[in-house]
Design a protein around this nucleic acid. Structure first.
Length: 116
DNA sequence: CGTGTGATTGTTGAT
DNA sequence: ATCAACAATCACACG
C-alpha cells in the first residue's frame, strides 16, 4: 500500500527567478479570496516551535527557528512527516471547497460590484 | 503606535 | 508541465 507513494523528493528550483513584490498586509486585498492553508511544514513548526523554545528559550526570532525547522524537517522521515501531511491534506480539501464558493461568488457579480 | 522584515518549506493558481 | 507568489510565526527597529 503505498498510498500515494512519497514520490522522489525532487529539489524544486524555485530559485530567485523573480523579485518578490510583497503587497502590504495592512492594505485591503481580496478578502473574498480564500487564503492558502498552512502547509504540513507549518503544522510541524507549531509543535517544533514550542519544543524549540523549551530547549532554546534564548532564541526568540523565528528566523533561527525556521532554519532549525527546515533542517529537522529534512531529517524527518516520511512516516513522521506524513502525520503533518495528513493534517494539511484535510485543510487543503476545505480550502478547495472554499475556492469553489469563491468562484461562485465571483460569478454572482461581486467582482464588478464595487460596493462602497 | 503601527507595520515591515527576517527564514523555513509546501501548496496552489495561472500560463 | 512549470513558474511565481503566498501561507504562519515572533521579536525588533524605524518614523
Amino acid at each position: 500500500m503505498k498510498t500515494r507513494s512519497q514520490t522522489a523528493p525532487k529539489p524544486l528550483k524555485t530559485v530567485a527567478l523573480a523579485p518578490r513584490p510583497r503587497p502590504k498586509p495592512s492594505g485591503k486585498g481580496d478578502a473574498r479570496a480564500p487564503k492558502k492553508p498552512p502547509t504540513a511544514f507549518f503544522y510541524f513548526m507549531e509543535d517544533f516551535r514550542k519544543t524549540y523554545k523549551q530547549e532554546n528559550p534564548s532564541v526568540k526570532t523565528m528566523q533561527e527557528i525556521g532554519k532549525a525547522c527546515g533542517e529537522k524537517w529534512n531529517t524527518m522521515t516520511f512516516e513522521e512527516k506524513v502525520k503533518y501531511y495528513d493534517i494539511a491534506t484535510e485543510k487543503r480539501a476545505e480550502f478547495e471547497k472554499a475556492m469553489v464558493e469563491y468562484n461562485k461568488k465571483k460569478e454572482s457579480g461581486d467582482m464588478s460590484e464595487e460596493s462602497d
